[in-house]
Computed example of a mutant assay.
Amino acid sequence: MTADHAGETGQNPDADYDPHASSLQGTADPEVLEELYAIRGSIDNFDATLVYLLAERFKCTQRVGRLKAGHNLPPSDPGREAAQIQRLRRLAEDADLDPAFAEKFLNFIVSEVIQHHRAIVADRG
Rank of each mutant, 00 (worst) to 15 (best):
5 H>E: 11
90 R>S: 10
83 A>L: 07
43 I>P: 01
104 K>E: 09
94 D>T: 13
54 L>Y: 11
105 F>A: 12
2 T>S: 14
22 S>C: 03
32 V>W: 05
58 F>K: 04
47 D>E: 11
21 A>D: 08
108 F>C: 10
14 D>Y: 14
28 A>D: 00
103 E>F: 06
114 I>A: 00
49 T>D: 07
24 L>Q: 02
90 R>W: 03
41 G>D: 02
69 A>I: 00
79 G>R: 10
100 A>T: 15
114 I>S: 00
101 F>M: 11
118 R>Q: 13
9 T>Q: 01
60 C>T: 13
54 L>E: 09
89 R>Y: 02
16 D>H: 11
10 G>K: 00
4 D>A: 13
63 R>N: 07
40 R>G: 07
107 N>R: 15
47 D>R: 15
99 P>I: 05
18 D>V: 05
95 A>H: 01
39 I>L: 12
72 N>D: 10
86 Q>P: 00
26 G>N: 06
102 A>E: 00
38 A>H: 06
60 C>Y: 13
124 R>Q: 07
113 V>G: 03
99 P>T: 01
53 L>W: 09
43 I>T: 14
21 A>Q: 08
98 D>F: 02
44 D>T: 08
90 R>K: 14
119 A>L: 14
98 D>E: 04
11 Q>P: 00
114 I>K: 06
76 S>K: 15
